[in-house]
Simulated scan of single mutants.
Amino acid sequence: MTTTDVATMSFEQAMAELEQVVRDLEGGDVPLDQSIALYERGAVLKKHCEAQLKQAQEKVEALTLSEGGQPTGVKPVDGL
């Protein structure tokens, strides 16, 4: 488990660490106290990934298309 600040991680970094956390927990070879710490870290990573996915979805939804279906720009979305 890394100690990198989750807020500074890219989606890909956070997802890779979350996958490792899940593998470690599923392996069952981790002491209880470490399992709890891994679970907590995983919850933070999951929340971070969900927030980044939501932000990306909002950006995609904000794309405006011309009548011909070509992107013409991005309209502002509240909170972005």
Rank of each mutant, 00 (worst) to 15 (best):
V44S: 04
G28L: 14
L80K: 01
E67Y: 01
E61F: 11
P76V: 00
L65H: 04
T3R: 04
H48I: 03
T3F: 06
E17S: 05
T8I: 08
A14Y: 00
T3Q: 03
D29V: 08
E26Y: 04
P71D: 02
R41Y: 08
A43N: 10
D24H: 09
M1Y: 00
L53Q: 10
A43E: 13
Q34W: 02
A51Q: 15
E40I: 06
Q57K: 11
V21I: 15
R41T: 02
A7L: 13
E19F: 12
G42I: 09
T64K: 11
E12C: 02
A43L: 15
L32D: 14
P31W: 00
E19H: 11
D24F: 14
E50N: 11
G73D: 02
G42W: 03
L65R: 11
M15N: 04
Q13D: 06
A37Q: 13
L25K: 09
V30W: 08
Q20G: 02
G27L: 15
A56R: 12
L53V: 07
T3K: 07
L32Q: 14
Q52H: 03
I36F: 13
V6C: 11
T4E: 10
T3A: 09
A7C: 10
S35I: 11
K47C: 05
K46A: 12
I36L: 15
E12L: 10
L45R: 00
A37N: 08
G79D: 12
V22G: 00
A51L: 15
D5W: 09
T8A: 13
Q34A: 14
M1C: 03
L38W: 06
L63G: 01
D5V: 05
E17A: 05
G68T: 05
V44K: 06
D78I: 01
T4L: 15
D5H: 09
E61C: 06
G73L: 03
A14S: 10
K59R: 13
T2G: 05
V77G: 00
A56V: 10
D78M: 10
Q34T: 09
A56C: 09
V6I: 15
T3H: 03
A7G: 05
K75L: 11
V44H: 01
G42K: 08
G27D: 10
V21K: 00
G79N: 14
S35M: 15
Q70C: 03
